[in-house]
Write a protein that binds this DNA or RNA. Structure first.
Lengths: 353, 353
DNA sequence: TTGAAAGCGCTACCAC
DNA sequence: GTGGTAGCGCTTTCAA
């Protein structure tokens, strides 16, 4: 089914049909009506590929993320989509699952689709890829990776500052032995966050210590990481998690071990995704404004209010500490006495009191 | 950057470049090497739109869902994507947010993209739209809506049977006053589930009763719905939720009101998404196999092992009851005495014991 | 094994 | 206002 069929049926040229399809030049209302009628009757749907090929423009932006299943990434995507739709753009997402070769595939696909702009929200970015992208002519937004450059916007989070607030807060509650739960990610953010924790701890010298454990970025990964951390025999009074979903996973493991949060162990998340309010106990976490990230991405890639897209800049986000119910003072009776007993028991929920 | 540039640089015709790009006909290894080199040097990326336009084929399937934020839909999407990628297909998702007009937009867009197949996993489907789709030549999979037809696969869940198991289970625990929490959805599944509850209850005649409340399909919606339900003064001993995320939301509201689950109120979910294992208490729910749904979709749309796509059939899924910690026997002391006191107190987490 | 050329379905420019 | 038509960048016969 092509334009031609519609043209014939309406008794006009394909040029005219194209005009009514695009509302471009003025078309005689009667003619227009006839065309519209023909379109409806024939159930005609224009071919998007032919359109973009002929038109040359794109009207779609790409978003690549590490793990859509993690609501953090999903929220960013949603925010982008909201703004994009409002401006008549489509957005296509792709998931890398933290795999560098998938990232490379995704990027290639986006370029082949000739997206008008591309947001890369991943942590496994290899420098070579960054260079390659930076060379092209598609406007790009990087989150957490790469450096400012022509045609590139960089959004980054001031992890150091966030972690500082967090660790100082924990220290003020008397915590000295910390645990850190991260996810597998070859470079970047995770290391940055863990490093930040270590650096801040260094300020208190021998006063504090931290041990870490990593696993998949998921609820299950958080649980496993917590299990590993505790299985080593280490007894942290507070566990800092790289993000909220892993924290929720850790919560589960602690519960199964009969450890109460925050009485026996404090737990913190990162991102402040919705679930952090709904889990039990609600998580103390650091807020990162996904909507702001989404808006910035659209501003950079599409532009706002007929302003041209605006790249070539760097936006720094400051995480904000959100204190809820998963953190508390270190208790007088060390948690270790409880753990010693429960450690070997099967991992089941404790009977309700 | 076009094929032509590559051809010139490699000293061959564009036809030859196209051949190496597609591994179609045999190309002289030396020529091939020269072409590949030119491609690399020029950082050439083929134009996907031109390719699909010229080639006529699609290699992408579309998936439309009501709410990607709900892991149920997301899991289905992931499953489809996994299978599709394995067969060299891309998948593009779209979200309707339960809005009929968005659904219509999404469908149109998918058709314009000339997807090779389309899965429609939504609950707000209007009959007119179904007819329109069924008329086309794209293979379609509907979930939960529509009837068998040419070029169409129907996947449906035997809600009645699932709800029967669930309600009978609750009845066996002594529950008589039920609450039902659903989401706003104009027709279909929700009504089907609630209706199923009512029908099953009818079997016990005056023995049981149910009242329902609806809200957005989200954690927050679940909380609000629970709030509304209880604010009416109704005192259910068990709350049946239309899905797991709303159940998690409800859990939060109950906790804030000082109601213990399952001692004071039992709560059930639906879907058995990951979070249902990780919330506290872990949810009793009905399992729906998202992976199976995903596989079926790919089978129908793409085909497996070089078999042709296989539509024109109906697949019925039987939900399986998964009993966890959110349900229990009705306690001797009615929950109402506790509620009466706590009802007017501010909604905050209770102090830890 | 390679090249020439005819589309694929549309947009946009130039005439009328 | 409307029609004719030259591309858009590629795939795919058909010849050579």
């Amino acid at each position: 089914m092509r334009l031609e069929a519609v043209a014939e049926r309406a008794g006009v040229s394909i040029a005219t049909v194209s005009r009514v399809l695009n509302n471009s030049t003025a078309v005689n209302p009667k003619t227009r009506a006839r065309v519209l009628k023909a379109i409806k009757e024939l159930r005609y749907h224009p071919n998007l590929h032919a359109r973009t090929l002929a038109g040359g423009k794109s009207k779609t932006v790409g978003v690549i993320v590490s793990n859509l299943e993690n609501p953090f990434f999903f929220d960013v995507y949603q925010a982008v989509e909201g703004d994009a739709h409002a401006r008549g753009y489509e957005v296509v997402v792709a998931n890398t699952d933290y795999k560098p070769e998938q990232l490379s595939t995704c990027i290639r696909l986006m370029i082949e689709r000739r997206v008008g702009g591309l947001a890369v929200i991943v942590s496994e970015m290899e420098p070579a890829l960054i260079d390659e992208l930076a060379g092209g002519d598609v406007p790009i937004v990087f989150y957490d990776v790469g450096a400012p450059r022509r045609n590139i916007t960089n959004i980054r989070v001031n992890y150091r500052q966030g972690i500082e607030k967090l660790v100082e807060y924990l220290h003020s509650l008397g915590h000295q032995k910390l645990g850190f739960i991260g996810h597998h990610s070859t470079l970047g953010p995770l290391h940055e966050r863990l490093k930040a924790v270590k650096d801040v701890i260094a300020k208190y010298s021998s006063d504090m210590e931290v041990r870490s454990s990593a696993n998949k970025d998921s609820l299950e990964g958080g649980r496993q990481a917590a299990r590993t951390l505790l299985a080593s025999g280490y007894r942290p009074t507070a566990i800092v998690c790289v993000n909220d979903i892993m924290a929720v996973g850790a919560l589960r493991e602690l519960r199964d071990r009969g450890l109460r949060v925050p009485e026996d162990v404090s737990v913190t998340g990162f991102d402040n995704i919705k679930i952090s309010e709904f889990c039990s106990p609600a998580l103390t976490t650091l807020h990162i404004p996904r909507d702001r990230i989404g808006h910035t991405i659209c501003e950079s890639l599409i532009g706002v209010d007929h302003q041209p897209p605006n790249t070539d800049r760097e936006i720094i986000l400051d995480p904000e500490l959100v204190v809820r119910d998963s953190t508390g003072r270190v208790s007088v009776t060390p948690a270790s006495s409880r753990i010693a007993v429960l450690e070997t028991s099967p991992r089941r929920s404790q009977p309700k009191l």
